[in-house]
Nucleic acid binder design. Structure first.
Lengths: 249, 249
DNA sequence: TCCTTCGTTGCGCATTATGCAATGATGATT
DNA sequence: AATCATCATTGCATAATGCGCAACGAAGGA
């Protein structure tokens, strides 16, 4: 659509990985140095990128401000935060995530870190795999049928573990079950030995606006134990939905 | 430099203020609807903006991720954080800021909120007034003379309060004194009844790489009381400088 | 059901971004 | 300290790309 703009956005995404020199940027974009430089200068003028003493480019400070403002604009996050913290505490310090559907992807909006020192690869702002996470399934399950088909058609059913759902047919079955029971499991489908349960947050009209999940490593609690957390998970999502409905007061 | 890119960046900055419709965006940029739409679509494709059900545009989730990554790339922030928290605690729960010079501006990199419920207008990522804040003075004071002159020439000596420094000559005097004594005051120059003291953080070569300030409302502590916090402030900045010098280990 | 409002698409024009080649600055190496 | 090498920067000609116009389509309200 807008060539120079998409190139500039690719620069920002690339700089998210780490610092780059002008030549590196030009090589990545496959354009002439001059072109890369003009884009970088424009970005720099508005503090979207920053140049250090050694002519390396970094993400600029404007992105701090926009980042926090973008988070603030997702009002559901503020409503959910206390409930997420409570859910994490009630389930014995497990990792809790909040995610929302945006533009064909499930995006993590908030995260409560596990008190156990097991690290998971997830980060606020990054997308969650739609076919291999509890929040992904919950969010896709409630999409309008037309959009749901489009999204499913676009999924790359790449296996993360031996249990990852491998095709669209199996995925549709799971989505149907998710809608019926109001929650869903992820039994080591994204990371081996990590089981999750997820459930939807709904607005006044009953539409799914976000998803919450609890993730537990096998060594802490076996799969059946994780399933036993579902009542607490549902209590949390229903509380968030209720707070959301009554938020204008 | 790059017209379409600067327009797109203006869109992002504008959306930081709140949601906008397509027509509003076009009006702000003073371009045709079509032009605004193409920019917005490009931004949306990479999740820099998000469209809600009512066709309003918001900042997108990619900015969360970039925002946190941008912060992570300012390594000084991680080094300073524990010292800032300790300084805040030692001074009785005052507001503490960390700022760095970037592209002609002083940018807040971290903030420890005051435990008193006095709110100050500052936010991580936003620029601090160079002539009316302690961190602004500290950072400009140590700039190479050439760049310093250019920056001073660009300052709009707009008064915030009756005590705000009003011209370049007075500002230069204060900068000289700042260099001599190694710290500086802001006596109600930015907000009435709020006094601050600020001091520099230096790298191995002695160059100023950041500034730390403590801000105290008059009702909590009078101006002389704030000046008495300088030893603790200097202890903190020196500790940060030392940690920074030995960080590679 | 009609009307209004707002987003979307196709198209021709020219403004704007691009690549090239030469210049200037910076830093490393001997 | 001097030379070389590397890398950023500038001017300029070309055409590709982004632009505005006008007509179409969709959605929401009266």
């Amino acid at each position: 659509m807008s060539q120079s703009l998409s190139r500039a956005l690719r620069i920002l995404i690339e700089l998210g990985e780490g610092e780059r020199s002008l030549d590196q940027v030009a090589a990545i974009l496959e354009v002439h140095k001059t072109t890369a430089m003009r884009l970088l200068h424009t970005l720099e003028a508005d503090r979207f990128v920053r140049r250090d003493d050694h002519q390396r480019y970094h993400l600029g400070s404007r992105l701090f401000a926009l980042g926090t403002m973008a988070l603030a604009q997702h009002a559901i996050r503020d409503v959910a935060q206390p409930h997420l913290a409570r859910l994490a505490a009630e389930t014995g310090g497990q990792a809790v995530h909040l995610a929302a559907y945006e533009n064909g992807a499930a995006i993590y909006l908030a995260k409560v870190e596990s008190t156990h020192s097991v690290r998971m690869y997830s980060r606020v702002g990054l997308p969650a795999a739609l076919h291999a996470t509890a929040v992904g399934k919950v969010l896709v399950a409630d999409l309008p049928p037309g959009e749901r088909d489009a999204v499913i058609a676009g999924i790359d059913f790449r296996p993360f573990t031996s249990r990852t759902i491998a095709d669209a047919a199996g995925y549709r079955d799971v989505l149907a079950r998710t809608r019926e029971q109001g929650w869903v499991e992820d039994a080591g489908e994204h990371e081996d030995f990590i089981n999750c349960v997820g459930a939807p947050v709904r607005d006044e009209a009953g539409r799914v606006i976000a998803a919450v999940s609890v993730s537990v490593p096998d060594v802490i609690l076996p799969r059946e134990g994780v399933r036993a957390l579902v009542p607490q998970l549902l209590a949390a999502t229903e509380a968030i939905s209720a707070d959301w409905a009554g938020r204008s007061s």
